[in-house]
């Protein structure tokens, strides 16, 4: 990403609003932007979804291929997640090898899915120690208006939820990817003394710190990531967890129904 000078007016404006409980786009602090999900967007992918979170637009594709298992999990399928922040999506994205930002994004999305055991990987074993199904989740940013973490993780979950294992390639019948859990990440940004859910780009640009909490359908925590140079108090983290549990419910429903 190219460095960008933040206008002091923007910083003051957002801070001033936040001090009175307001946001630039009129949302409440714990209110995410509207989420739309289109599943099965790409026919060449085994699963896919295009997700719009406000003006942030992400396309996620899942490809499923035969490969080798890891030696320590000989009878389990493999999950691999990558993200491309292509320069089409933002004037601040540059072509080139994955930036630390893209790698962090892919890893945080991966962690939520992996740690909540979203996919039953034992059902992806073909021949123990030799052949398993490998899931490649590829996150492709199309329009960047803040909070790629959540948009990408909703896209990944939606794409997995409609994915089919192409077992016909090995002479069997295709079957739906065995999805067992629905982890939802909720990211919030710290602005002044306030914590705002689903920061838009302007908010993200001035945020001191960022926190992502991924919870499952029981409200249990499955992954977390604190980012940026600022800090959170323990109470703020606890509040972020409660918010993630509460806000995540509605978002999970949208993704399940899509």
């Amino acid at each position: 990403m190219t460095a960008e000078v933040i206008s002091e007016l923007l910083r003051e404006h957002i801070n001033r609003l936040a001090a009175t409980g307001k946001r630039t786009d009129g949302r409440a602090f714990d209110e995410p932007r509207p989420l739309t999900v289109q599943k099965n967007y790409i026919k060449n992918a085994e699963g896919s979804a295009r997700v719009q979170l406000g003006d942030t637009d992400v396309l996620v594709g899942v490809k499923i291929d035969v490969g080798e298992p890891y030696p320590d999990t000989p009878n389990q399928g493999v999950l691999s997640t990558s993200a491309e922040l292509v320069p089409l999506a933002s004037p601040t994205f540059e072509a080139g090898p994955p930036s630390p930002t893209a790698i962090e994004l892919a890893r945080v999305v991966d962690r939520g899915i992996r740690e909540s055991k979203t996919v039953n990987t034992e059902k992806l074993c073909i021949t123990p120690k030799e052949k398993v199904w490998i899931m490649f989740i590829d996150i492709h940013a199309l329009d960047y208006d803040g909070n790629l973490f959540d948009a990408a993780s909703y896209g990944a979950l939606a794409a997995l939820s409609c994915a089919k294992v192409p077992a016909s390639k090995i002479g069997k019948e295709d079957y739906p990817l065995p999805l067992e859990h629905w982890p939802i990440s909720v990211t919030a940004a710290k602005i002044g003394g306030n914590v705002l859910v689903d920061p838009n780009l302007d908010e993200e640009r001035i945020a001191a710190a960022r926190i992502t909490v991924t919870t499952d359908e029981n409200g249990d925590i499955r992954a977390m990531q604190k980012g940026l140079r600022g800090s959170f108090s323990l109470d703020e983290v606890r509040a972020a967890i409660r918010t993630s549990q509460r806000v995540g419910k509605g978002l999970r429903g949208i993704i399940q129904r899509a």
């Binding site: 790409i42 060449n44 396309l59 990558s82 072509a95 090898p97 490649f136 590829d138 492709h140």
Partner: peptide
Amino acid sequence: RYNMAPFSVTDRKRPG
């Protein structure tokens, strides 16, 4: 810059 998304083709294309 012409770029293909990894999932755009039948066999996944390595990013980049």
